[in-house]
């Protein structure tokens, strides 16, 4: 395992003793305190990623190194794993599935180089990471380590200031967007036009999902009863509001959002009780992942044991 500029965060490793326990590990990081902090590595290299990669590329070329013939078998194995569609979901013609909404958004922005995606925090954030394809660095702005609801709209504004002609989209949840909604006013004052694409499920979806997994589906205070009318709210700020409730209306509405010269609040009303899979339940190892086609209500209810419940 060649770890480059990453830090073995608990959201990545899952149960530590089951994270790639027998691999030989190389770790490249500019921060010496990140090395051997969480996982023991066999070969640490302190340095800047670009500098170290440059040397690696040069040495590989100069010494005419080749990969092992076994790599072929490894690739074949991987192709088999790939064949299983781990991002599948049941499509509906009546209600918008959140995953479908993002697939349509992805279709609309594909091939464009000037797109910056930010997110808030929750299910929509994970779906955005899963369903939007990122082709180049610095185009994906998300609160990873801290998980700050309220990050996405101001972050999109910041990106828009730096790239005035670009398309800056904040993929949001209905709960998160209300945490820094006041920044709509900032966007309007400064003639910035970030688009906020709200996957509106009326729930704090990620909280509801955890309550279903860990707390007998008792949905304690994770439903928002009195959400504002996001279209009127956009208009109140002097921005544009768009609401979509049917899958068939999505493409035209997304186009309208993209072409709009003003900031937009896009109220995409989606299926309310969708869960975000795959998921490695806390306390579990990577190979105990819950996949969408296996995640029956029963499997979800029993996915986490007592020890796992205290983890986050």
């Amino acid at each position: 395992m060649i770890c480059i500029g990453a830090r073995f965060d608990d959201r990545i490793t899952g149960r530590l003793d089951a994270f790639s326990p027998n691999s030989t590990k190389i770790h490249v990081d500019i921060d010496p305190s990140s090395i051997n902090k969480i996982v023991h590595v066999d070969l640490p290299i302190v340095g800047d990623v670009a500098h170290v990669l440059e040397d690696m590329v040069r040495i590989w070329r100069a010494s005419s190194f080749h990969s092992q013939p076994e790599l072929k078998g490894w690739q074949t194995q991987i192709a088999k794993w790939r064949a299983r569609d781990c991002l599948s979901y049941r499509h509906s013609d009546d209600v918008i599935m959140p995953q479908y909404a993002l697939q349509r958004l992805n279709e609309a922005i594909k091939g464009r180089k000037d797109v910056y995606i930010s997110t808030e925090v929750g299910q929509h954030q994970m779906w955005a990471a899963q369903y939007l394809g990122f082709e180049s660095p610095n185009h994906w702005l998300t609160s990873g380590g801290f998980g700050t609801m309220g990050y996405g709209l101001p972050a999109a504004i910041g990106a828009q200031v730096a790239h005035p002609g670009a398309l800056c989209i904040n993929v949001a949840g209905d709960a998160s967007i209300l945490m820094n909604i006041q920044e709509m006013s900032t966007a309007v004052q400064h003639g910035l036009a970030p688009k906020t694409f709200i996957l509106n499920n009326s729930y704090m979806g990620m909280v509801r999902q955890w309550q279903q997994l860990l707390h007998g589906n008792r949905l304690s205070h994770s439903y928002t009863d009195s959400l504002p009318d996001f279209v009127k709210l956009a208009e109140a700020y002097g921005a544009k509001g768009i609401r979509v409730t049917k899958p068939g209306e999505l493409d035209d509405a997304i186009q309208e959002m993209i072409e709009s010269p003003e900031p937009v609040l896009f109220d995409c009303c989606v299926a309310q009780l969708t869960n975000c899979f795959p998921m490695i339940p806390s306390g579990k190892a990577h190979n105990e992942m819950l996949l969408p086609d296996e995640a029956t209500d029963e499997a979800v209810a029993n996915a986490i044991d007592t020890a796992g419940k205290s983890l986050v």
Partner: peptide, 13 residues
């Protein structure tokens, strides 16, 4: 990661 796709996470273990 926690909501990562199947192949790489499985492979890491």
């Amino acid at each position: 990661g926690m909501h990562g796709t199947y192949e790489p996470t499985w492979r890491c273990t």
